[in-house]
Simulated scan of single mutants.
Amino acid sequence: MTDLIKPMAEFSVEGPLKSISFDIGSYNVVISESIVVQWIVMLVLGIVFFILGRNLKVRSTSRRQMAAEYLVNFFNNMVRDTMGEKYRKYTPYIGGLFCFSILSSLMGLFGFRCPTSDLSVIAAWGITTFVLTLRNKLKTGGIKGYLKGFIEPMPFMLPFNIIGDIANPVSQTLRHFANILAGSVIGGLIYFALGQVANGLASIGVPAVCSLYFDLFSAFIQAYIFCTLTMAYVSMAECGDD
């Protein structure tokens, strides 16, 4: 009887894998899979943007140029509607971040580990948002206005305002990271469970349907939310020096 019982396979979730390891003098350098995949994402985006942006004409005569103009208008409108006309200079950053986030989250479809499921990657984006927010506060209010903002509307708000400044990039980072990681884990569990109990079309069709949400929809919505929060934090960081 015991011979008929097959041991269950194991399912595990690991961190970024060590992809490349080499020595420089006495130091051992290890480049994680997240870094390698991000370079692949940058290469792909660079090629796509180069193709879309070359040989542009005043009058649109090709679908390629129409696609390029649509993307530019989409991000211009996105920044203008959220941040205001005077913040249009942030359009290249927001557009690049949006495209980079989506493609990074979709790399799992090609057999790679999504960089957006690596906390260190999203944390770097969150720190960038914090720096841009701090820069705008200092630019609009100076050091005096920035420090004064910590005690408004009342002096006892000082600890809460400090916590708020730190909590914004932390919550922004964890929201994006947790949603993408959860999607990867749930997707892995679905493949694992179907591999144990199902055969045929079910083992193909169910993961494909789930992928529409956990990969495609989730990648787009998380990129949109992260970029929207970045724009909101930066534009709302204005402070005056009265």
Results as ranks from 00 to 15, higher is better:
Leu43Val: 12
Pro92His: 01
Ile51Arg: 11
Phe130Asn: 03
Met42Trp: 07
Ser21Val: 11
Ile221Phe: 08
Ile40Val: 15
Ala232Met: 14
Gly46Thr: 02
Ala208Pro: 00
Pro207Ser: 05
Leu212Tyr: 01
Leu229His: 11
Leu138Gln: 01
Ala198Glu: 07
Ser19Tyr: 02
Tyr233Val: 05
Ser105Thr: 01
Gly25Thr: 11
Phe98Lys: 02
Val44His: 07
Ala237Cys: 06
Ser34Pro: 00
Tyr233Gly: 13
Gly25Lys: 05
Gln38Phe: 08
Cys239Glu: 12
Gly149Leu: 03
Leu229Lys: 15
Leu181Asn: 07
Met66Arg: 15
Gly188Leu: 03
Met157Arg: 07
Val29Trp: 10
Ile163Phe: 12
Arg64Gln: 05
Arg80Asp: 12
Gln172Gly: 13
Ala68Thr: 06
Gln172Ser: 07
Ser32Trp: 06
Thr133Gly: 15
Gly84Ile: 15
Ser203Val: 13
Asn179Pro: 09
Trp125Asn: 09
Asn28Asp: 04
Pro7Trp: 08
Ala232His: 14
Val58Gly: 14
Gly149Lys: 05
Glu85Lys: 14
Thr116Asp: 02
Asn136Trp: 08
Ile51Ala: 14
Phe50Cys: 06
Ile163Lys: 08
Leu216Met: 12
Thr230His: 11
Gly46Gln: 00
Phe177Ile: 00
Phe110Trp: 10
Gly96His: 00
Leu174Arg: 04
Gly183Gln: 02
Phe112Trp: 01
Val58Ser: 14
Asn55Leu: 08
Gln222Gly: 06
Lys6Gly: 04
Thr61Ala: 14
Thr173Pro: 03
Ile40Trp: 11
Phe74Gly: 06
Gly111Ser: 02
Asp81Trp: 12
Leu103His: 00
Trp39Ile: 11
Val44Trp: 09
Phe11Met: 08
Glu85Ala: 13
Val41Leu: 02
Leu147Trp: 09
Pro155Glu: 03
Glu69Ile: 05
Ser117Phe: 07
Asn77Lys: 14
Asp118Ala: 10
Glu10Leu: 08
Val58Cys: 05
Gly53Ser: 03
Ala67Asp: 01
Pro207Ile: 09
Leu17Lys: 15
Tyr87Lys: 15
Glu69Tyr: 02
Ile24Arg: 05
Gly141Val: 00
Thr91Met: 12
Asp3Pro: 03
Ser211Arg: 01
Gln65Phe: 05
Ser171Pro: 05
Asn136Pro: 10
Ala198His: 10
